[in-house]
């Protein structure tokens, strides 16, 4: 564990807490893409299948439970909670996210480190996480407003994988044989997808006004 990895995990945790805070306190999920949340639930479900078979540390298991619990409860809130699901703009959240799942599964079957059930699903979760934000970014362009908790959520979510990239660079130089091209490329693609959002997000800080 290094400072970049810890900062990345804390940023990721903060992103989830910001979203839960928004949905739970103001009982609204306006501007939040249910499709992105469903993709993240699948990402965690397929990445943490080994949660009961391989113990790494209390921290690791705890964080996996937090990410699993929060992503599924956010999906539950947005689908079934009486007040929240009314605020979900279904007409705008139309990105065909199932078109992302299949190519990621095929790619995981073709490119992986080991051809085992757990490894292929784990690799699938990496590819899927890289593109999971797309429905949310498309929805953001339609709702045209980043000046709210959803904007903070996306900012933190994009930042966490960027910090993980620093962690991978650090580990590459400090740990012999630490090479994971699949993870690195998927993480890089994921972070690059946020470049456009980061640009407008920082403009908003500099301009000090809501950016369209």
């Amino acid at each position: 564990m290094n400072i970049f990895r810890l900062a990345g995990d804390m940023t990721h945790l903060a992103s989830v807490l910001v979203l839960l805070l928004k949905i739970h306190t103001i009982k609204s999920c306006a501007g939040v893409s249910l499709r992105t949340q469903e993709l993240y639930a699948i990402v965690f479900a397929t990445r943490y299948l080994d949660i009961f078979t391989s113990f790494v540390s209390v921290y690791n298991t705890f964080m996996k439970l937090v990410f699993l619990g929060s992503s599924f409860s956010i999906v539950w809130y947005m689908r079934y909670h009486k007040a929240v699901h009314r605020t979900y703009d279904r007409e705008q959240d139309t990105f065909r996210h199932w078109f992302l799942v299949l190519p990621c599964l095929v790619l995981a079957l073709l490119i992986h480190e080991k051809f085992t059930f757990l490894e292929v699903l784990w690799t699938f979760s990496l590819y899927l996480e890289a593109v999971a934000i797309l429905p949310q970014l498309v929805l953001l362009q339609r709702t045209r407003n980043i000046d709210n908790l959803t904007g903070q959520y996306i900012f933190l979510l994009g930042g966490y994988r960027g910090l993980y990239i620093l962690n991978w660079i650090y580990r590459y130089f400090t740990e012999p044989h630490f090479v994971h091209w699949i993870t690195w490329i998927a993480g890089l693609v994921q972070t690059l997808l946020y470049a456009d959002f980061f640009y407008y997000y920082f403009l908003r800080f500099i301009g000090g006004r809501g950016v369209e």
């Binding site: 990895r5 995990d9 990721h12 080994d50 391989s54 790494v56 540390s57 690791n60 964080m63 996996k64 990410f67 480190e113 784990w122 993980y164 962690n167 740990e175 044989h177 630490f178 090479v179 994971h180 993870t183």
Partner: peptide
């Protein structure tokens, strides 16, 4: 690389 080191991350 050993199995664990690539799976010790979230």
């Amino acid at each position: 690389s050993t199995e664990s080191d690539s799976k010790d991350e979230l």
